[in-house]
Design a protein around this nucleic acid. Structure first.
Lengths: 218, 218
DNA sequence: CATATAACATACATATGGTATGTGAAAAAC
DNA sequence: GTTTTTCACATACCATATGTATGTTATATG
């Protein structure tokens, strides 16, 4: 979460934060807690009702504050949604990285990471908020900005590593990464409605595997 | 199916209209014309401002009627958007089919169709309304229903034909079709922001070609 | 010709997002 | 320690947009 030092105007994040030496006051903790409550309430509402149907009034009530408090913490409704997407993407990237790290060889890391990514995409909240609604609500530019910074960065980095090691050959790693991303998201939206999800998933992975295979060298 | 009266220039649709053998009255023609005007105004508004920002008042004014007329023709705002998506998808399917038909061999039809699909996806109105916003506005289920009935049906049919001819080998044609579809849409959202669109497009097509190549037999 | 109906227009009800202002407690300044 | 300021909220208000209920007129129909 973002903090702003009143004295220095310095901003910093908790999560990937640097210690600035200055101590946190109790009040700051409370503030952060209500902000978190609003964000959590927002995620719930957006996930279950969708962006448009989710009302700020209801979200605020769920966080046990008034709409006044909401507008103190967030610029507007879109800002809350943006924050929700960022939080989900950071979470997603962490989960994927953790799973990928269980493998030694880079190529195995890739396939494990893709597995993990698909698992994340299958979580209903993620599917609805990030995949289904975020592009429309935030606009493509902003959506891609967030996506590139978090979950896709891992994929791109892994593909780049493979290329450096000479195990993969393609000019535009970024593009290849996006294509794989698109296929994974497609799978995520397809699987919940399938009559045989296990089989469908296996087939989907085969397709993705085939594609990557065509660029594999050695 | 759209008909245009060569004498009057009036357009109308046959589809929901019962074939009564009865002649079309002038009044019915007028009615259909205003409906068309509303639909066109809606497409413009949705394409330039997005679903949420586009107001029914403005759309109605652009069609030179009041909001009362709008609500006479459409259930609600979503219904207009739905109609706009359907119309765009029907149009898209027609364009793709026309282009694909220029080729003799089925495999060439496939690649030509993919080319044509990408071209359609690059039209700003289509990209914004169908690709970017429709899933969020209509919900995934409805979105896929429309997509499957129109542009994707062609892709699936072509892939199925190739499979029948023994030129393609994969168990789930529908899935493969969806994957290709996902990649094309991804390309469409990627290209407008690219510094070298021509090169990017070529690379994207190479990726899609590679994927299909892995299932090619003979 | 009378009646019904359909294609609109008008007026209204209501919800929701956003803003402007008020308040009390806590931190900073002196 | 007292004063002053700040900040995290609450209250009240406003604007806008969706949707509905009702009214009106022209056309089709018996």
């Amino acid at each position: 979460m973002l903090y702003v030092d009143r004295l220095t105007g310095v901003k910093w994040y908790v999560g990937g934060m640097q210690e600035t030496g200055r101590e946190r006051t109790r009040r700051e903790e409370y503030t952060e807690a209500t902000r978190q409550a609003l964000l959590a309430a927002g995620q719930n509402a957006f996930a279950s009702e969708g962006y448009q149907a989710a009302g700020i009034e209801a979200i605020s009530r769920a966080a046990r504050v008034t709409r006044g408090a909401f507008y103190h913490h967030f610029e507007d409704k879109k800002a809350l949604f943006d924050a929700a997407v960022v939080a989900l993407q950071i979470e997603a990237a962490a989960k994927i990285e953790a799973r990928a790290k269980t493998q030694r060889k880079v190529w195995d890391r890739l396939t494990e990471g893709i597995e993990a990514y698909l698992d994340v995409c299958l979580e209903p909240a993620y599917a609805r908020i990030v995949i289904q609604e975020a592009p429309a609500v935030l606009g493509n530019a902003r959506y891609r900005e967030i996506e590139e910074a978090h979950p896709m960065a891992l994929l791109t980095a892994t593909l780049a590593a493979l290329k450096r090691q000479g195990e993969l050959d393609f000019e535009d790693i970024e593009l290849l990464s996006r294509m794989v991303d698109a296929m994974i998201c497609e799978m995520a939206l397809l699987l919940p409605g399938a009559e045989n999800p296990k089989r469908l998933r296996a087939r989907g992975q085969k397709i993705i595997g085939n594609l990557l295979g065509t660029f594999r060298t050695g």
